[in-house]
Nucleic acid binder design. Structure first.
Lengths: 153, 153
DNA sequence: TGGGATTATATGGGCGTCAATGGGTATATT
DNA sequence: AATATACCCATTGACGCCCATATAATCCCA
């Protein structure tokens, strides 16, 4: 499996370290398995993260926006300038920068939510509430969610 | 046969392991035969499962949505973070996460129901009741059932 | 074709390995 | 020196791997 899936709740120790879930670590390419990038989510008070390889993909997404639009500048600035890289130690732990922890309201515990090609880090309670809200919004349009999950080979 | 069919009733042992029915295992591609994905059914208190190939299909669909839309996040969150992958051991057994067991009311035994491209895991009694109910609903519209069964390719 | 023999499946349990977490210490940055 | 960060080692509990058994299914040959 090469996608970030499922959710995990890990603790931040006295030194500020937190384990990246093992299943997430395994997705990172063996080459850059000791480094990830983090940035503030645009749409929610959460941190998004992924392997460094994904940067190109993000760049492509932004490039697809109209270059002369305000959105282009906004996304470009909000994402690229906010990206930080962090190293993963031998035990699979890393440090969440203080600014990002503040942005997400994270203190002693954090929740990791798989999002396919990337993942989100939330303050646990807020994260759970967010998934409930998302699901509730989607269930209002059962059809679309069913379509996503139903196989049409 | 490459479809999940029939029903099976297996036990959960002290370690929480349960056998995936052999006929289900054989449907999984030899490549990823030791991994399946599980998620809460949208429509019923049951767990749905399938091979990882199907997940990649879903991922592709989500990726085609507008990355900066709210829908993207809703789908991504509701699907990827709710999906769990579990490994199948050499004997064909796997672990059902506690949260999913709770959702389906499963304790010491579980029923597997083939659903074609995926399968459902139910608390045995509820599962049986559900199939009776489904059948009863179908029979109320005999005409449409007959059409389904007699329709020529 | 009958019936023993082989194989497969569901299930039980021992045990080693790995993941998450804690903490000491060295190295470094300023 | 003081703070921060990486490496090393330790602990605990969960999980995977291996081996074992009972029952069911299949085979195979006389």
């Amino acid at each position: 499996m090469d996608l970030f899936v499922s959710k995990y709740f890990n603790k931040i120790d006295k030194k500020g370290r937190i384990s990246l879930p093992s299943s997430f670590r395994n997705i990172l390419p063996k080459a850059n398995r000791n480094e990830i990038i983090l940035y503030k989510s645009i749409k929610s008070p959460s941190i998004e993260g992924c392997g460094v390889g994904r940067l190109k993909e993000i760049a492509k997404r932004i490039n697809n926006l109209d270059f002369f639009s305000e959105d282009y500048d906004d996304f470009s600035t909000s994402i690229f300038s906010e990206i930080v890289t962090t190293n993963i130690d031998k035990e699979g732990r890393f440090l969440i920068p203080e600014e990002l922890k503040l942005y997400a309201g994270i203190k002693t515990e954090a929740a990791f939510f798989g999002q396919g090609h990337f993942f989100q880090i939330w303050e646990p309670k807020q994260g759970l509430k967010n998934t409930e809200d998302s699901r509730r919004r989607l269930l209002k349009e059962k059809k679309s969610l069913r379509m996503m999950l139903t196989q049409q080979k």
